[in-house]
Structure formats: C-alpha cells, structure tokens
Amino acid sequence: KTYTFRVRIVDEETGEEKEIEVTAKSEEEAKKAAEELKKKYPNLKVELE
C-alpha cells in the first residue's frame, strides 16, 4: 500500500505557492521526504497535508 501526500511549498521570497505530490510507503517516509525538501530549499515553507 502506498500513501500519496500533498506537500504545499511556499517560496518565502516570491510568495509563490506550489503543490507537489509525494508518494510514500508510510507517513514516516513522507515526513522524511518533506524534511529533505526543507534541506534542499531552505527558504521554502514546506507543509505536509
């Protein structure tokens, strides 16, 4: 079973919002993916929905 999570990304500089879908095998995995995004884009606000 896989879970699909919507991750909302807000670029703090431009105020631009993007939504991406993360497919993960567990909620834990999705959280890790969101953390990776935060590391990659430090000025983005990442929200897991």
Rank of each mutant, 00 (worst) to 15 (best):
A34Q: 07
V7K: 00
G15N: 03
E35H: 08
V22C: 13
I9P: 00
L37I: 13
E19M: 15
E13T: 11
L44E: 03
R6D: 01
K40M: 13
K39G: 06
P42I: 03
L37W: 08
V46E: 03
E35V: 08
K32G: 06
Y41M: 03
K32N: 11
P42N: 06
T4H: 07
K25I: 12
Y3L: 08
T4E: 04
T14S: 07
A24S: 04
Y3Q: 05
Y41F: 08
E47F: 14
E12G: 06
V10A: 03
K25A: 14
V7F: 14
A24H: 03
L44N: 05
T2C: 14
P42G: 04
K25F: 14
A33I: 15
K25C: 14
E29I: 04
A33Q: 10
E17W: 15
S26K: 01
K40L: 12
I20Q: 01
E16L: 08
V46T: 04
V10C: 06
P42K: 04
A34I: 15
T23G: 03
A34D: 00
L48I: 13
D11S: 03
K1P: 14
S26G: 05
R8C: 12
D11I: 04
T4I: 12
E35A: 10
K31D: 04
K39E: 06
E47N: 07
T14A: 03
T2L: 13
T14P: 00
L37H: 02
S26D: 10
K38L: 11
T14H: 02
E27T: 06
E19G: 04
A30Y: 06
E36S: 07
R6K: 14
T2P: 07
K31R: 14
I9Q: 00
R8F: 13
T23C: 10
D11Y: 02
E35M: 11
A34E: 07
K32W: 11
K32L: 13
E29A: 08
L44Y: 12
E28T: 06
E36I: 08
E29F: 04
I9A: 03
E12A: 10
V22I: 15
V7H: 00
L48H: 06
E27K: 09
K18I: 15
E12K: 09
P42Y: 03
A24W: 05
K31L: 14
V10L: 10
A24L: 06
T2K: 11
V10M: 07
A30P: 00
E36R: 09
L44A: 14
K31A: 09
V22N: 00
A24N: 01
K25Y: 14
N43W: 11
K25W: 13
K38R: 14
K39Q: 11
E13P: 01
G15Q: 03
K38N: 05
A24Y: 12
V7P: 00
E47D: 09
E28Q: 07
E28M: 09
L44D: 03
L37G: 01
L48Y: 13
Y3I: 06
K40P: 02
V22F: 15
K38F: 12
T23Y: 14
E27I: 14
L44S: 11
A33C: 15
A30S: 02
E28C: 09
A33P: 00
K31G: 06
N43P: 03
E16C: 13
S26P: 00
K38Y: 11
P42E: 03
K18R: 14
E29P: 00
E17V: 15
R6T: 15
Y41N: 04
S26L: 01
G15S: 02
F5V: 10
K18V: 14
E28V: 10
A30E: 00
E27M: 14
E49L: 15
Y3V: 06
E12T: 12
R6C: 10
V46L: 07
K1V: 10
A30N: 01
V10D: 01
E35P: 00
A34T: 12
A34V: 15
K18G: 04
T2A: 06
K32Y: 11
K38G: 07
A30W: 08
A30D: 00
E16Q: 07
E13A: 12
K1I: 11
L37Y: 09
K40H: 07
L37R: 01
N43C: 07
S26R: 01
P42M: 03
E35I: 09
K38V: 12
